[in-house]
Simulated scan of single mutants.
Amino acid sequence: MRLEAEGVISLELQASDAAPLPEWSPGAHIDLLLPSGLVRQYSLCGDPLDRQRLRIGVLLESKGRGGSQEVHGSLRVGQKLAIRGPRNAFALQAGGPYLFVAGGIGITPILAMARAAQRAGAEWQLLYGGRSRRSMAFIPELQALGEGRVEILPADEVGLLDLDAVLAAAAAGQQVYSCGPAPLLDALSARFAAAGLSERLHLERFAPAAPAPGAATGETLKVILARSGAEVEVPADCSIMAALRAAGHQVASSCEQGICGMCETRVLDGVPDHRDSLLTEGERARGNVMMLCVSRALTPTLTLDL
């Protein structure tokens, strides 16, 4: 455990038998199974080539749901923990050029991406915003990665990130990868959508996006499981995942907020009503996958590859 910035610690995890750890790629995260029973997702911010260690960064959130408080207050060096994963719902596409935009603790997946881009010889730049330098983790590590490629932009020194410049970079051909607080990601999403550039924006959220104003839970719908032929009725006030489980069907999940991708399921028939914070506009338009934990349907029936 190491203090990386004000309110931010990093944890290095090693297999208890010193065996090589699973392979992972930049953008991946793990589920950390805490002693209290809480399960929390954290992005990997180490080096994918290091098969002996997995590193995560954890921001202490006093008004959070308790996971970060347990990590900061209770975990100690040498303690044994269980993890699940790694999984990647925020993969870095090969090529570039890249513009990475990180806000606060959102630097964790971006750090691994910047390292990968540098190693691959790709063109890349990084804009890193935060409240102050004291609260921004991994600054020396980032600056050592690419001289002249990293801009450290604390709000108390330079104000908010210039999102119009980010949009201009995308219009000039850069792929933008961003992780950070909801206001930053919401603002980027709105700008890119208005400019017709949503396919060049890749986001990872630590919390689900706010529902659209007036969004209803939905009507009662019927879900058909193609592999077994079973049919399950999903009430208007119930998620598809909860209804399937209540009917005795096993569904893998982790965050259950539409941000981790573990419950992604193929749609064989029907039109999903996407309410996740993960799929791109293009993926939503294709309509062939959905997140069962939060999404519903625009048709009375859905047929799933289950």
Score class of each variant (00 low, 15 high):
Gln125Phe: 09
Asn288Ile: 10
Asp164Glu: 15
Leu292Phe: 02
Val71Thr: 08
Ala102Glu: 13
Ser25Leu: 09
Ala285Val: 14
Ala171Asp: 07
Arg191His: 11
Glu61Cys: 11
Ala91Phe: 03
Leu99Ser: 05
Leu54Ser: 14
Ala236Asn: 12
Gly146His: 13
His202Thr: 10
Leu75Arg: 03
Arg275Met: 13
Leu38Pro: 02
Ala102Phe: 10
Thr265Gly: 01
Arg286Pro: 02
Gln257Trp: 01
Ser277Leu: 11
Leu184Val: 15
Gly7Ile: 03
Leu54Ala: 07
Met113Glu: 08
Gln257Glu: 15
Gln125Tyr: 00
Gly229Asn: 07
Leu221Thr: 09
Leu145Gln: 10
Gln175Ser: 09
Arg131His: 15
Val158Cys: 08
Leu278Ile: 12
Ala215Asp: 13
Leu298Gln: 15
Asp164Lys: 13
Met290Cys: 13
Val232Lys: 03
Pro48Arg: 01
Ala297Lys: 08
Ile240Thr: 08
Val251Trp: 02
Gly229Trp: 08
Leu188Glu: 03
Ala82Ile: 04
Arg227Asn: 03
Pro208Thr: 09
Gly103Asp: 05
Ser277Cys: 07
Leu203Lys: 02
Leu160Thr: 06
Ala210Ile: 07
Leu244Asp: 01
Thr265Cys: 13
Arg149Thr: 04
Val8Met: 06
Gln257Asp: 01
Ala102Trp: 10
Ser132Asp: 11
Arg84Val: 03
Cys179Phe: 04
Leu184Gln: 14
Ser25Pro: 02
Ala215Ser: 14
Asp50Gly: 08
Met113Gln: 07
Pro154Glu: 01
Ala190Phe: 09
Arg65Ser: 15
Glu256His: 02
Ile9Arg: 12
Cys45His: 06
Glu204Asp: 15
Ala116Glu: 14
Pro300Val: 09
Asn88Val: 06
Ala169Thr: 06
Ala195Glu: 04
Leu60Val: 06
Pro35His: 01
Ala91Leu: 07
Gly173Cys: 02
Tyr177Pro: 03
Arg65His: 14
Ser253Thr: 03
Glu141Ala: 15
Ala236Ile: 10
Ile30Thr: 05
Trp24Val: 00
Ser228Glu: 02
Val158Phe: 14
Gln174Val: 00
